[in-house]
């Protein structure tokens, strides 16, 4: 092969191996968390989604205060005005400022979305976790799993929004009612995912090993099972939040959600249905755009996160 031209004769003597380790170049090591963050940051869609989300959250907090109009203040002489420096997003037929109403609606959507998703998360992880963990653990274990899965199955057998609609009809309309209605059946999806994950993880050597070594149930769940499911749980969360937001605007659009005069993206869209053909496009456009952007932001961020958490992705 390529024999060096220079004289290397003098190099044929034992080397001082101690010096070797000092100048060794190693591949840059990074922790799992850092790696995930690096991958998310590299994913432009995810970054864009995250930034968008932050902007929407900030505007939902400060948006209504940036103009002098309150979301539900009517001014019939100022009805259906187009965009202007006075009314940034125009006004609706009752002369209410669409900008103020849009961000007031954002608040409701986000509060409902986050609250419902967190309740779903808690119930879903608990039920799915117990069910998956108990499955295959003797008769009692199987019975618990069976019972829980039956409940899940029944709830799964009813269209989600149908149940929510029925509950909304039954209870007094309002934000709390909405959150309760959304989380009564919303946890089912999370429970199924968590159970599936646990069943899968239980088969893996490291869990079997921990079990054989006599590690306690709680420790196995907390040390081995949960960390390995964190990714999929967080990713699922980034999808349940927007679906709750969607459900809220869907119900409000049907007139079953938050009630007038409270602003919500759904009610605003519904109010504007009649006028879309007559040219007051801003009344549908802004709430519609904000719902879409919010859904987009969550989904883009969730997708990026999912990719980043996948150990197989580079």
């Amino acid at each position: 092969m390529s024999q060096p031209q220079i004289n290397i004769d003098h190099l044929f003597r034992p080397a001082d191996k101690e010096s070797l380790h000092s100048d060794k170049i190693a591949r840059p090591y990074e922790s799992y968390g850092k790696e995930v963050i690096r991958k998310v940051v590299k994913n432009k869609m995810a970054v864009f989604g995250f930034v968008l989300l932050v902007v929407i959250i900030l505007l939902s907090i400060f948006g209504p205060h940036m103009v002098s109009h309150t979301p539900s203040k009517q001014n019939l002489t100022q009805g259906n005005l187009p965009l202007s420096s006075e009314h940034w997003f125009g006004t609706d037929d009752l002369g209410r400022d669409v900008w103020a109403r849009t961000w007031a609606g954002a608040r409701i959507s986000l509060v409902i979305g986050f609250a419902a998703a967190i309740i779903d998360l808690i119930i879903g992880v608990f039920v799915g976790g117990v069910s998956g963990y108990m499955a295959g653990r003797g008769k009692t274990g199987d019975r618990i799993d069976n019972l829980l899965m039956r409940i899940v199955e029944v709830l799964f057998g009813i269209p989600y929004l149908l149940v929510v609609i029925l509950l909304m009809v039954m209870m007094k309309p309002g934000i709390t009612t909405m959150i309760i209605a959304l989380s009564i059946t919303g946890w089912v999806g999370m429970a199924r995912i968590v159970r599936g994950q646990i069943l899968q993880l239980k088969q893996q050597e490291f869990v079997l090993a921990a079990e054989k070594l006599g590690t306690s149930h709680a420790k196995i769940i907390i040390r081995h099972l949960l960390p390995n499911m964190m990714g999929i749980i967080i990713v699922n969360l980034t999808f349940t939040i927007p679906s709750a937001i969607f459900a809220e605007s869907f119900l409000s659009f049907l007139g079953l959600g938050v009630q007038a005069p409270t602003a919500s993206w759904g009610t605003m869209a519904n109010d504007s249905l009649g006028v879309i053909l007559s040219g007051q496009w801003w009344r549908l456009f802004f709430p519609g755009l904000m719902i879409s952007l919010t859904m987009f932001a969550f989904n883009a961020f969730g997708d990026g996160l999912q990719d980043a958490l996948d150990p197989k992705s580079k």
């Binding site: 390529s2 024999q3 290397i8 190099l11 034992p14 080397a15 070797l20 591949r27």
Partner: peptide, 27 residues
């Protein structure tokens, strides 16, 4: 990711010489 310039086994070899660290041995 960053292979050594000399013999790749030099680091683990019990008989490493200085030449091993500097140059890839030929056949």
């Amino acid at each position: 990711f960053a292979p050594p310039k000399g013999c790749p086994f030099a680091e683990r070899c019990p008989f490493t010489m200085e030449v091993c660290l500097e140059h890839m041995p030929g056949k």
